[in-house]
Simulated scan of single mutants.
Amino acid sequence: MKIAFFGSSLVSAYWNGAATYYRGLLRALAAKGYDITFYEPDVYDRQKNRDMDPPGWCKVVVYEGTIDALKAVSGSAAEADIVVKASGVGFEDDLLLEEVLGHARPQALKIFWDVDAPATLAELKANPDHRLRRALCGIDLVLTYGGGDPVVNAYRAVGAADCVPIYNALDPQTHHPVPEDIRFSADLAFLGNRLPDREARVEHFFLEPASRLPDRTFLLGGSGWQDKPVASNIRYIGHVPTRDHNAFNVTPTAVLNVSRASMAENGFSPATRVFEAAGAGACLITDDWEGIEFFLKPDEEILVARDGQDVAALVAGLSRQSARKIGESARQRVLTEHTYTNRAEAVDKIFRARLGARMEAAE
């Protein structure tokens, strides 16, 4: 079966948090025999900051960030059995959705894949005439990478025929244990771009604990933090390319996950960083959110902090030996239950069941 997937970027993780998710899931679907073409616009300097070549398991089509190029490439939807428009493509998203749905064949399975459901749902709530809300009547299924029942119910309430979460996971081929790298030495490290929906929580869960523990070392990675006032025991290293993520995760005593506010409020929304870190065998400290135990067991496979004071206490009391034990337990759990192979099994069943039912109805 042919999939036409319109997303932000497969070949660049630059200002593109969905890259790991796309790569892991689409590679696993390709292994099941799907013929996938990924369409991405040349915007936000992503093509200048590629961190992988187009893979053998998926054809990548890069189009110019112009209306004419968008309209031309959207015609490719007519060739696919399954047409996917992802959220957050980054160039004329509403128009792209309209064009893709307009070109898709009537018998094709039409999917909106939301990689930031809380943000999308907030837009729909604020704007009853939102183009996505109007388009939902022509979409067969909404898939999201997190959110649980709150997101599923919210999507159904605004007109989605159905909504199914397909959670982030681990791709063992890309995220795995590696030797430590002195560049990333620290007692606690955090990697994440500076975003309005997360900055206050980073201050609370990372900057504040650093000020409480002046004798400990903290490492901050990600884009946009260069002008942020931080304590002297925090070392800022800027953007960390994906090729260095494994070393970034395994070298510090622990790494920190800080959810965006909207993700924490909805729960059941583990960031890709959670599975990247666990796959490398890192000891992960996360802010508290509903549903953590569905993915990793608190105190044994992950450490949970309610606030910055909890983070400081955990860092102060954590030995390298106990950190490594927690990290290895997390790695074994995600290898067993939370790989993209696991997720692709679920997606494959959904695709085949829905296309099969459509074929039977047409006979």
Rank of each mutant, 00 (worst) to 15 (best):
A353Q: 08
W289Q: 07
I350L: 07
A264E: 15
V347I: 08
Y155I: 02
D53G: 04
Y34H: 07
N342M: 06
T242M: 12
S329A: 15
L26V: 10
P298N: 14
P252H: 10
D162S: 13
F295N: 04
D114W: 00
K125H: 09
N127S: 06
R194E: 08
P106K: 08
P118A: 11
V84F: 03
I111E: 01
V115E: 11
T20Q: 04
D149F: 09
G192W: 00
D299M: 10
A271L: 11
A264G: 13
A108P: 02
N246Q: 12
F268I: 04
Y63N: 03
L95T: 09
G75M: 08
Y63S: 07
A69S: 15
V334H: 02
S185I: 04
S8A: 14
S211I: 08
A186L: 10
D310K: 05
A346L: 04
A361C: 11
L101E: 08
V178H: 00
Y236C: 03
I292N: 00
L96C: 10
L96G: 03
A344L: 04
D116Q: 05
A247K: 05
Q321H: 06
A316D: 13
A157F: 07
Y39P: 07
G327A: 01
E208M: 06
G356T: 04
Q107C: 10
F248M: 12
D187P: 03
V311T: 02
A157W: 06
N342G: 07
D197N: 01
L256N: 03
L191G: 13
N127C: 05
A117L: 05
S185D: 14
G317A: 15
A361Y: 14
S211V: 09
T174Y: 12
P241D: 14
R354M: 10
F295V: 02
A160Y: 01
T286M: 14
A117P: 03
R27S: 11
A316N: 11
V60F: 05
I139R: 07
L96V: 05
S76D: 15
N266G: 08
Y145L: 12
A247F: 11
R216C: 11
D42E: 11
K228C: 09
N49T: 13
D94Y: 13
P128K: 03
R260W: 00
A282V: 12
E180H: 08
N249S: 15
I111S: 01
R212E: 05
T341M: 04
H239F: 15
G291V: 15
G146H: 06
S74M: 12
I350F: 01
N257P: 06
D93W: 04
I302L: 06
M263F: 13
L219Y: 04
A247L: 05
W289P: 01
D215P: 02
G146M: 04
V311R: 02
D244Y: 10
V100H: 01
F6Q: 00
E276A: 00
H204Y: 10
A247Q: 02
L207V: 14
A277L: 06
